[in-house]
C-alpha cells in the first residue's frame, strides 16, 4: 500500500472539494473495509484519502412513523443490524445487515461503503488486465465463472457484492447524493450501472459526489419481509445467490410484493414482471412455485454458473413459503 495524505473534512462540501480537486487521485473513505483491500492489493493507489467519518451528522438512524427510516451513510453495519426499529419493522434489512462479512467488519463497515464496494470477481481483484480495470477483455467469460452473473452481464460478468443493495432495492429506497452544494435524492434502482452502460463502474457517482444517506419509506401494516442469503460457507462469505422479499397481505390476499436478487447480476436485480404478479393476488398453494418459475426468464448462464438459476428459483420458493405460509 502506497502512502497517502489522510484528509479530515468537517463538512460534505469540504470533502467534495477535496475529492474534486484530486481529479481521480483522491478517494472517499469511511469504514475502509473494501478500500483498504483495494489499496493493499495496489488496485488503487490514491494520493489523498478523504475521511468522511470526520464529517458530523452522517451516522444516525431516524425513524418517523408513517414516513420512513432515514439512515446516514456512515451508520455502521452492526448499528444498522441491531437497531430496534430496523429489527422490528424492516426485518429484511436487519437480516441482510447481519449476513454481511463478520462481526468485526460489521463494527467498522458502513452503509454507504457497503453500497459502493467494488466487485469481488477474482479477475478484477487479481493480476488481470480486465475490462473493468481498463483492460481489454473479460477473463471470466471463458474462465472460472461459477460465481459470476447469469443475467444483466455483457462484456463484463461481475455480480454486485452488496447484501444491503438487494434488500434496499426491495424496500424502494431513495439514496441521497451530495453533488457540490446540492443534494439529489434518486431511487436506488437508478444508482447502479449495468456493464452495457459503463463496464468500468458499478454506480453513477461522479468525482466529488458522496452518498450521504438513504431513505426507506415506511411499510404499511400487514407487511412482512425477509432476506435469505445463500453462501458456500456457513458464515463470512459473499452471496452465491440471495433473495429479499417484502409482502403486504390482507387476509388471504397479497396486496403487493417485491422480490429482488443478489448474486445473479452486476447490479441488485428485480423484475417488474415478477413483482406485478404479486399485486392483488390470492394466496394459494401454488403461488410460491408459480412465482419462482417466473423469475429470471432471460437468464443466460456461462459455462459454470447454470446452477444459479434453479438455486434462485428454490430460494424464491423458500422465501415466499416462509412469508406466506
Amino acid at each position: 500500500m502506497k502512502n497517502f495524505e489522510y484528509l479530515q473534512p468537517k463538512s460534505i462540501a469540504e470533502a467534495a472539494g477535496y475529492l474534486k480537486a484530486g481529479n481521480g487521485t483522491s478517494i472517499p473513505y469511511s469504514g475502509g473495509t473494501d478500500a483498504l483491500v483495494m489499496m493493499k492489493d495496489n488496485l488503487i493507489s490514491p494520493k489523498k484519502v478523504v475521511n468522511l467519518k470526520s464529517i458530523p451528522g452522517l451516522n444516525s438512524i431516524d425513524y418517523i412513523r408513517g414516513e420512513g427510516l432515514k439512515i446516514g451513510a456512515l451508520v455502521t453495519i452492526s448499528d444498522l443490524a441491531e437497531h430496534p426499529v430496523v429489527k422490528d419493522k424492516f426485518k429484511i434489512l436487519s437480516e441482510a445487515a447481519e449476513s454481511i462479512a463478520s462481526p468485526q467488519l460489521r463494527n467498522v463497515g458502513t452503509v454507504g461503503g457497503n453500497l459502493c464496494q467494488r466487485p469481488r470477481c477474482a479477475y478484477f481483484r487479481e493480476d488481470f488486465d480486465c475490462l473493468r480495470k481498463g483492460g481489454n477483455a473479460c477473463y471470466a467469460f471463458d474462465g472460472e465463472n461459477k460465481l459470476h452473473c447469469i443475467i444483466g452481464g455483457s462484456l463484463c460478468y461481475i455480480v454486485h457484492p452488496s447484501d444491503l443493495a438487494t434488500a434496499l432495492l426491495v424496500l424502494n429506497t431513495k439514496i441521497s447524493i451530495a453533488s457540490g452544494e446540492k443534494i439529489n435524492e434518486i431511487p436506488i434502482a437508478d444508482f447502479f450501472v449495468l456493464p452495457d452502460e459503463d463496464f468500468t463502474r458499478e454506480n453513477i457517482l461522479q468525482s466529488g459526489e458522496i452518498v450521504t444517506s438513504i431513505f426507506i419509506p415506511d411499510l404499511p401494516e400487514g407487511t412482512k419481509s425477509s432476506y435469505i442469503k445463500f453462501r458456500e460457507r456457513a458464515v463470512w462469505d459473499f452471496a452465491v445467490v440471495s433473495v429479499g422479499a417484502v409482502i403486504q397481505t390482507s387476509g388471504s390476499e397479497i396486496v403487493s410484493g417485491r422480490i429482488a436478487f443478489g448474486g445473479v447480476a452486476p447490479i441488485p436485480w428485480t423484475e417488474s414482471v415478477v413483482n406485478s404478479k404479486l399485486i392483488n393476488r390470492t394466496i394459494d398453494a401454488h403461488i410460491a412455485d408459480e412465482i419462482a418459475e417466473s423469475i429470471l426468464s432471460n437468464a443466460d448462464s456461462l459455462e459454470m454458473n447454470g446452477y444459479k438459476i434453479p438455486l434462485a428459483k428454490n430460494l424464491t420458493k423458500r422465501i415466499l413459503t416462509q412469508l406466506l405460509m
Binding site: N23, G24, T25, I27, P28, L43, I44, S45, P46, C116, R118, F124, D129, L131, R132, K133, G134, G135, N136, D198, T200, R201, E202, N203, L205, Q206, S207, E209
Partner: peptide
C-alpha cells in the same frame, strides 16, 4: 479498447 471513467471508481486510471 478502454474508456476511462472518473469519479469514485478509480480503477482504470489507477490500474
Amino acid at each position: 479498447g478502454s474508456s476511462i471513467a472518473g469519479g469514485y471508481i478509480l480503477s482504470p486510471a489507477i490500474a
